[in-house]
Design a protein around this nucleic acid. Structure first.
Lengths: 218, 218
DNA sequence: GCCTCGTAGTTTGCATGCAATCCGTGGAAC
DNA sequence: GTTCCACGGATTGCATGCAAACTACGAGGC
C-alpha cells in the first residue's frame, strides 16, 4: 500500500485537473475517502494542501468546493506566466545540457503526433506532454523559487487543458513554438528563447480568452 | 477557543518567520503540539500546509524540518519579485483609490519613523509595515494569481527580515522608494511606478546579497 | 578495528470516535 | 402569505490509539 496521503493528494489533484468535478462541486470528506479508498484523515490533509495550491476553496465547518475562476483570473494567470516563463526559458538557454535538449526535442515531436488533426489526435496526451515540456524548462532554469511561484498558479484546470479550446491555426503555431524553443536553446540564445516563449504564451492566451479588451491592450 | 488548526498554522508560521527556529531545526509533532496547545492532528495539517508554502521541508516518516535557503535560492526569490512586483505596481497606478493612497502614504511615513536611526529605531516594526505596504500594492493590482505566485515565494524569512541586513544608505533609499511609489501612483504613471519598484527590489537584493557575480550581471 | 546485522525506543502515519457546527425542514406566530 | 424559531440529520474539527517505519545503539562476525 502506497502512502495514503500521497494517494489522496495525487488522486484528488488528478481528478480536479482531469475535469471530473465541475467548478464549485462540493467535496465531502467521507465521499472522497470512499472514492479514494482511504480514511478521512489523509483526505483532510489533501484538501488542506490543495487549498494552498488554490485548487479547492476551503471554508470552516462548511467543507471544500472545487475552486472556480473568472476570465479575469485566467487572464491574470497568463500575466504571471508571461512574467516568469520567458525568464526561465532564457536561463535555460545557457544551462540546458544534451539530455535536456534531447528530452525537449522528443516531447516536441511527440506533441506533433498527438496533436495532428485526425482520428489519432489525442488532446489529453498532448496536455500531458505540454505540461512535461514546460516543467522541464523550469527545472533546467534551476531556480526553485520560480518553480514554486508558477506551481501555485499554473495548474488552473482550464489553463492546463487549454488545447481543447485551440483552433487549428493556434494549435499549429503552438506545436511549432515548441520546436523553435528547442532550436533557440541549441543556439544558446537567451533572447530568442524568451521571445519564442512570449509568443507561445500570447498565442495560448488568445486561443483561450480571445482578443483582449481595448483598455488593457494599450 | 479559536480554531486549533488555524492557531497552529499562524503560530508556526510566525515562529518560523520570526526567526525562533534556525534553518534545519527539527520540528517534532508532539513538541509543537505542546508548544501550541493543540493535539497532533492540527499540527500535522499545519506542517502540511507550510510545506506547500515552502517554509518547511517534509520527508515521509522522517518528520519536518525548517526549510533552508542557499544564496542562489534567495537570489531566485528576488528574480521572481523583480518579474512580478513591478507589474503589480504598474497596474496599481491605474487602480489605486483614495483609500489605498492614504493607507500607503501612512505606511510610508510610519516606516520613516520606525526606521530612523537612533534608540527608537524598531526594525521588527519596520519589517511588518513593509510587508503590509507590498501586500497592499499586490491587493490593489487586483490579480489573485499574482498574489498567489508571490505568496509561495516571498515569505522566505531572510527576505522578509532583510531590513536587519541593511546599511544606512540602503535603508534610506528603501524608505525613499516607498514615498516615490506613492507619488507615482498619485500621478497615475504605470511606467514610473514600475521603475521605482524595480529600483526598490534591486536595492534590497544588493543590501542582502551584495554585488552580483559577473556572469549574471551580463 | 571496521563493518554488518539485530533490537529497543521513538516518531510518524492513519483510522476511528466524539463533540461542535451547520443546513434544511417543519411548524407556529404575526 | 411571510417570517422566525426549533429541532433533527449530516458534516466537519479535533483528540486519541495503534500499527508501521525510522534512528540509534550495541553485539557479533570478518
Amino acid at each position: 500500500m502506497t502512502r495514503a496521503t500521497e494517494r489522496a493528494v495525487v488522486g484528488l489533484r488528478e481528478a480536479i485537473l482531469g475535469g471530473e468535478f465541475a467548478g464549485g462541486t462540493r467535496l465531502g470528506e467521507v465521499e472522497l475517502a470512499e472514492r479514494l479508498g482511504v480514511s478521512r484523515t489523509p483526505v483532510r490533509e489533501a484538501l488542506s494542501r490543495l487549498a494552498v495550491e488554490g485548487l479547492v476553496d476551503l471554508s470552516p465547518h462548511r467543507g471544500a468546493r472545487v475552486a472556480t475562476w473568472t476570465a479575469a483570473d485566467l487572464d491574470a494567470v497568463f500575466e504571471v506566466r508571461l512574467a516568469l516563463e520567458p525568464r526561465a526559458t532564457a536561463r535555460a538557454a545557457t544551462r540546458a545540457g544534451p539530455d535536456d535538449l534531447a528530452e525537449l526535442d522528443r516531447l516536441a515531436h511527440a506533441m506533433d503526433r498527438a496533436g495532428r488533426p485526425g482520428p489519432a489526435q489525442d488532446l489529453d496526451e498532448l496536455v500531458e506532454q505540454n505540461r512535461d515540456f514546460h516543467a522541464r524548462l523550469v527545472t533546467v532554469s534551476d531556480q526553485a523559487a520560480l518553480a514554486t511561484a508558477l506551481a501555485g498558479v499554473v495548474h488552473t484546470p482550464v489553463v492546463l487543458r487549454n488545447f481543447h479550446a485551440y483552433d487549428a491555426d493556434s494549435l499549429a503555431r503552438s506545436l511549432a513554438h515548441h520546436h523553435e524553443v528547442v532550436a533557440a536553446l541549441r543556439a544558446r540564445d537567451p533572447d530568442w528563447a524568451a521571445s519564442v516563449m512570449r509568443s507561445h504564451i500570447g498565442n495560448a492566451r488568445a486561443a483561450l480568452l480571445g482578443p483582449r479588451p481595448l483598455e488593457e491592450a494599450r
